[in-house]
Amino acid sequence: MTKVLTDTRSIRIKGRSFLALVLSPEPPLDAWLTRLDDLASRSAGFFLGRPVVLDVADLEIDRAELKKLIDELGKRNVRIMGIEGGRPSLFEPGMPPAMKGGRPAPDIEIPAEASVESPGAAPAAATAPSLQVEPPAPRAISSIVIREPVRSGQSVIFPEGDVTVVGSVASGAEIIAGGSVHVYGTLRGRALAGSVGNASARIFCRRLEAELLAIDGVYKTAEDMAPNLRGQAVQLWLEGDSIMAERLN
């Protein structure tokens, strides 16, 4: 049986990153849970509504213990969205999925004065982490510059921001940027801008000979491109679900 699709629009799949809290339990687990309770008593709802990942890479633990740990955390309203660093044998159906490829982010800590401790508390309490996390300060949009030609077979993947190539992008090469793609040369390969869901990303090139162009998941192959844009300096952007293009200069 062949299914007939009545709606031929393709499904758009985007990437997105969230900052998760990572808990790294230390043995003995009972003592660690007590310390966690202590933290929670001082900051009710600290974990509420936050994605939490359990890092078990440095923990000697078996499946039953892990299951118990997840249950214990659940009782404390800490909902685990994924487990990092666990051996495949640790997992069973119903557990949070294994995660990998996480990148470190700065430690989450709060200045001591934000603490709710009373003035007479022990000195240790003065340095205890406070429990509210401020939203990260807006970071400058990052970008990378590549000063040489991108050769056939090479991929430049930069989800964090813009990619600028001072040189050409060869047939069979690809640039995947979270932001915009700028090519100061001939773009013969593929350029994918706004790859993690950024509809305002654009593609600029000094000479358009591309095999494929994509912005925020909407793509166009060489065949679909207007022939009068070939060989021209062009910028491309997204309006709704269609890629628009105009000649520069």
């Binding site: 040489e148 050769r151 056939s152 077979g153 047939s171 069979g172 090469a173």
Partner: peptide, 12 residues
């Protein structure tokens, strides 16, 4: 030419 381009990338 395209194969050569690929090889140049590997050389680098």
């Amino acid at each position: 030419v395209r194969d050569s381009d690929r090889i140049i990338g590997l050389l680098d």
